[in-house]
Structure formats: structure tokens, C-alpha cells
Design a protein around this nucleic acid. Sequence first.
DNA 1: ATCTAGTTTATAATTATTCTAAAGTGAAAA
DNA 2: TTTTCACTTTAGAATAATTATAAACTAGAT
Lengths: 135, 135
Amino acid sequence: MKKIDILKKLRSSGLRPTKQRVEIAKFLFEREKTFHFTVESLNKLLSKKSGSKIALATIYNTVHAFKTAGHLSEVEVRGNKTYFDTNVSNHHHFYDSETSELIDIDANDIIIQKLPKVPNGKKIKNVEVFINLKN
Amino acid sequence: MKKIDILKKLRSSGLRPTKQRVEIAKFLFEREKTFHFTVESLNKLLSKKSGSKIALATIYNTVHAFKTAGHLSEVEVRGNKTYFDTNVSNHHHFYDSETSELIDIDANDIIIQKLPKVPNGKKIKNVEVFINLKN
DNA sequence: ATCTAGTTTATAATTATTCTAAAGTGAAAA
DNA sequence: TTTTCACTTTAGAATAATTATAAACTAGAT
Ligand SMILES: [Mn+2]
Ligand SMILES: [Mn+2]
Ligand SMILES: [Zn+2]
Ligand SMILES: [Zn+2]
């Protein structure tokens, strides 16, 4: 991902490209594979990578702005902390509770044959499949 | 559900049948349909029903003992608070984000035709399907 | 270069949950 | 029965994730 794309992500999130935000954005989006993280893990990885300690509030704010803009999604995982996901397409997850690790499943790799009838007056927004793993 | 069953639920959870625990257990298990709740909502409903204010710590402790004993399950829902479920069989959920309401889906009402290959050395513990609703 | 709206940050506040320790109680034993 | 004591309840403190605050800073327009 080019610097120009990073700047685009920031601008489209209503964020001016400050040093901190660019560092967070590059860390999140300059990668090949999906990245699943919590604010805590992101903070640790950022500190380790560049020594520069970005305030937690800035990380929360930036991550939330990206989420609101649709550049990050949120994944529900058992536990207290919120997980974020750089994969914003419609997809599913394996969850390995041994390692607390999320693994992407492409939407096309799961086919649901039978669905229940939807409650009156409601429509399906989306379907999420969560596969818990054990050893 | 008979009083004897309530006592059974308590004993099998390693809990002596005190006044508070019996009140909580009756409220949770003496009903026909599944009951989905948070500790906060349960607390409010219990207070409203009987005026007797059971300490929050007691509600947390009792609910957790039931969960550990397998008499309650936990459901992952977007948001900060933990949801519990009196339906401990394998099943799925609709989630109506307008009303923050969970609705049970029987396991047999969803058939998954194609599943992805599981990561090496891992097995599937269970599959949870979550259907988000909109109006 | 100056100015200002937007930003960062340390710190406080909030919220859900868990812990603690003192006072209370169920039920087994005497 | 009364005694006894391990188990309970409870109020309040502690913890942990997240959000709010407000003072010091800065990007970028002028
Ligand atoms: Mn969660
Ligand atoms: Mn949740
Ligand atoms: Zn993902
Ligand atoms: Zn349910």
C-alpha cells in the first residue's frame, strides 16, 4: 500500500495526516494479510516497532475513526476486549481460544443451505459465522 | 419447573439454596421460553418483581456458578455487556440491533452445506451463526 | 511568519466486572 | 433445641477497558 493510499484512508476518515496517525495507518494497512487486533495489542506492537509512545487516547480515536469510515471492522470475540479487523469485506472467522487468535474465512468458503424464517417486519442485515476451534 | 428442579439446579452448581439464590434461580428457570439477559437487566427485573434488592455481587456470583455448571450459556453480542442465555443447547441467534434483542434459532433451522478446511492440528468445537437484523 | 482549527496527551471519569472483608445464616452436630 | 462454623451476603473498594476533559501543541491555510 502506497503512501498516497494511507493519506486517502486518513482523509476519507476525516483525519488530517499527522505523524501519529500516519504511523498507525501505515502499521495497520501496509500489509498483505488481514490483521486482527485489540487496542492493547496494537499499542504494544506500535511501541515495540518505533519506540515512540503514542497516547492510548490517540489510538482509540484513530481506530474508531477508521471503523466509522469503514476502513476497519469490529469482530465479536468472547471476552472483555474489543477486536478490530483490517478485513472489511463480508467474511467469517475461526477462533482459536487456545491462542486467542482469529483466522479469516472467505465468505465463499461457507455456504448456508437452509435459513430460518426471519421475524415479521425484519430483514437480514448480514450473517456471521463463527467457528470455535479446539486441539 | 418444579421447586425440586430449582433445588437440583442449585445443588448441581455447588450452591446451597439460600433465599437469594432460590429467587434468582426461580426467576431464570421457571419459564417456558428462552430468556436472554445481562446482569444489569436481570438485576432490574428482580428488583422490580420483588422489591428485595439482592446485591449485585450475589447476582454475578450466582449467574457465573450456573454458567460454569452448564445451566446458562453466554452469548457474544456487540457491545460492552455480557449476555447470558437460559438455552444451553446448541443453537443460533437473530440479533435485532434496534431493540438489542436476541431471538433463538433452533440448530436444525440452519444447515451449513460447505465448510472451510480447518487449520492444521485443530478441530471444530462448535459453529455459531449470528444473523443481524434490520427493519 | 502568523494564525487557528484541529490534534495530542496526561489525566480524570465512567462502566462493567471482580475482589475483599466484615456481618449474617443454613444446616450439621451436640 | 442450641451451638457451631463453613458458607453467604453485602457494601464498598479495586480493576480494567474505554471515553471524556482540557491544556499544550501543530498542520496547513492565509
Ligand atoms: Mn467481545
Ligand atoms: Mn460482547
Ligand atoms: Zn477477519
Ligand atoms: Zn439463545
